[in-house]
Each structure stands twice: as C-alpha cells, then as structure tokens.
Nucleic acid binder design. Structure first.
Length: 373
DNA sequence: GATACGTGGCA
DNA sequence: TTGCCAAGTAT
C-alpha cells in the first residue's frame, strides 16, 4: 500500500471532482439532495445494478412519495412494489425505518452517520452515503466501488470481505475525501467504479485518475481488490404440488424467517425431508416418491391427496447460496377435506395478480400456465 | 466473523 | 452451464 502527500490528495480531489462535474450520470435520484430520495435509491442499489433500479425507483416514488406515505403503506402493496428486486428484508426494513422516523424522530432526519445507522436497514455504507450526499457531512461511503477504486489506486492488499478492512478503508478515504464536496466526491468514486474502473474490463488507460492509479502504473490493476472466492450454491431438490379446487390453487405461506420469508408458494417439500420421513436413502421409482409424498401430507396436515406427475420441465432457480430444482406434481384433494391443519390458502386468479411473488414462484406459475395454453 | 439473504447480466 | 459481479445489512 502506498500513501499520498497532502498535495497529491488535493490534486486528486480537483481531478476527480472536475471529471465528475462534466461526466456525472443523470439519474432519477440525482435531481435533488432530498434525504428521502437519497435513502430509497441507496437501499435499492444495494447489490443491485443501476439499470435494474431505475424503473423500480420511479414507481416507488409515485406510490410512496413521502416518509409518511411509506410508513403508513399497506405491506402487501409495498412488497408488490419491491417484487423482483430481491433481498426483500430491504423493503421491510424500509418501512420499519420510516415508522422510526415518524414516531421516534418526529419526521426529522438525524444528520450524522452514527445516528443514521440506528435506523433499520441502514449500515455504515448507506449512512455515509446519506450523510454526505443529503447533509454534506465529510464521511466516506465505502461500497464495492470504493473498495475497488481505492484498492487499485493505492495497492491496498487487505482482503475486502474482512470487517476490519472496512475500517481501514474508512480511515484512508476519510483523509482523501473532499471536505467541501463530500457527497459529490463519494458519488464520483461510484461513477468512476462503474465506468473506467470496473471489476472485469477496466479501461484504466483512459481513466481521468490514471496518473493516481498505482496498480495501473504497475500493470497489476486486476489483482485488486483482493477478495475471497464464494462457495457454490448448495443443490436442493424439491417437489412442488399444484393443488386445484373450485376455489383456486392451494398456496403455502413460508416461515417468517429465512429465505423468501413470508412469501406464498406452491406447497414445497425437499427430497431430503421426504426421504427422511420415508426412512429411505433414495427413491427407486417415481411411484415410490409419490406414495411417500401422499403419506407425508396425510401425516403432517391430514390432507388426502391423489398425486400424479405433471408433463413440464423441472424449475431450476439459483439463489446466492442455494440452487433449487423443483419437480412439479399435480395433486387432487380427495372428497371433502379440512384445511385447518395446513398453513395455506386457496388463491384465485385475482389473488395471483394482487400478490407479490418471488421469482422462483413466478417460474412455477409459468410452467402451469403453459400447460393450459 | 462467517453466513444468509434475490435477482439479472455477462463471458 | 458455471462463476462472478452489482451503490450491503443483519445476525
């Protein structure tokens, strides 16, 4: 790691901000510095690309234009607005924080990074972004761009996923950040990181700060940032049941913790769970599997099912840590049944239009729809 | 301090 | 198809 003199820091600030003034992206949330606008955009942009966020941001502002509207919003409507963006706890924390602001802060924003981090869903990065952009506080906003940009500029070899490394970057950037225009400085770093100093195909030779880029000068910019490899998603096989009645299709509410918390999906059973229930290591025939599934639902929910395979391809969906393969089966309820032991509801066509679903359920729904066509 | 938490794009 | 990336936070 190299260090910069005060003169070099000043020169870097001038160069970066001059480039930003002439080349900054025209984004919907950059029309003003309203903390509500900054906040919503920053939450949406977590682990999500700008082009994906733009239409969501526009719709969100039309639906929930103020903190008060967001705080009092119907949760189903809020989730519908977030549908497809992923990391859904972001949306739930958004409303939780809106209520905090209305109830505990009388609708007045705290203006320091430390105070902002007391709000649900706001961590060190987002707090720094809001404090600097909306309130002109000279604090760093260390996101993936900042890690990449400054690790390359200064050849910082620390592994960036280590929590301690964030503090190192905050300290370093805290010295380099423009004290006059901290918000523009932080945003300039982000624009730089998404243009000339990208992860895969950087264009370092045309970068406005190439003369400050030690790793480029040394021809080793792709060595930065230093990052650990992630484990591959764990493969999980599911059986998904399509149960129809005159009232609609049977949907099951997921647990309120874990992946896709509180979302509605077709009833799902993991192959592992079913094998354990059946006392087997594997199913030798499809018939054995369906027999076990029938017993499983009868035993756990008092549901009597007549199951048969559906002529559709398995649904494959990959999350960050799990890869699901879902085999779909048709199931008829035999005669009159009591659903009181089953955590589910019959969904009408209108329900399917009104409810927010995760992408993996949308894929399953498409399979069924293609059968009808 | 590892791990969980969604989705889409790209090579 | 697989791996990795894209403006992180919570536990």
């Amino acid at each position: 790691m190299i260090e910069w003199s005060d003169d070099k820091i000043h020169s870097f600030q001038i160069t970066l901000l001059d480039w930003y003034d002439h080349n900054k992206r025209d984004l919907p949330w950059r029309q003003d510095h309203d903390p509500y606008h900054v906040w919503i955009s920053e939450i949406m942009l977590q682990q999500t690309q700008v082009q994906t966020v733009i239409p969501y941001y526009e719709r969100f502002m039309a639906d929930f234009p103020t903190i008060e509207k967001l705080a009092s919003a119907d949760e189903g409507k809020l989730m519908k607005a977030w549908e497809g963006l992923g990391y859904y706890s972001r949306a739930r924390n958004l409303q939780k924080a809106a209520k905090q602001l209305v109830d505990d802060y009388h609708g007045k924003w705290p203006k320091t990074s430390e105070a902002l981090q007391q709000l649900a869903g706001i961590g060190p990065y987002t707090a720094g972004a809001i404090a600097s952009i909306a309130f002109n506080q000279a604090v760093p906003a260390v996101d993936g761009n900042a890690f990449r940009v400054f690790s390359r500029l200064l050849e910082i070899d620390d592994e960036i996923s280590q929590p301690h490394t964030r503090q190192l970057f905050e300290k370093i950037i805290g010295k380099i950040i423009s004290k006059d225009r901290p918000g523009d400085f932080n945003q300039a770093v982000m624009d730089l990181g998404s243009s000339y100093m990208t992860a895969a195909n950087p264009d370092s030779s045309h970068s406005p700060v190439k003369e400050f880029d030690q790793s480029f000068i040394d021809g080793i910019e792709l060595n930065y940032p230093v990052k650990n490899k992630k484990p591959r998603p764990k493969a999980i096989t599911y059986y998904g049941l399509v149960v129809r009645s005159s009232a609609g299709i049977l949907m099951q509410k997921r647990p309120d913790t874990g992946i896709l918390a509180d979302f509605w999906t077709f009833p799902l059973v993991t192959e592992t769970e079913l094998l354990t229930f059946d006392g087997k290591d594997e199913f030798l025939t499809e018939s054995d599997m369906m027999t076990a599934l029938t017993r499983y639902f009868k035993h756990n929910y008092q549901l009597l099912l007549n199951i048969q395979p559906l002529p559709v391809k398995a649904v494959i969906h990959t999350f960050t840590h799990q890869k699901w393969t879902i085999h779909l089966l048709a199931a008829e309820l035999s005669s009159k049944v009591n659903l009181s032991f089953f955590p589910g509801n019959w969904f009408s066509q209108q329900d399917f239009l009104d409810t927010a679903f995760p992408k993996v359920q949308q894929k399953m729904t498409e399979r069924i729809t293609s059968l009808d066509a």
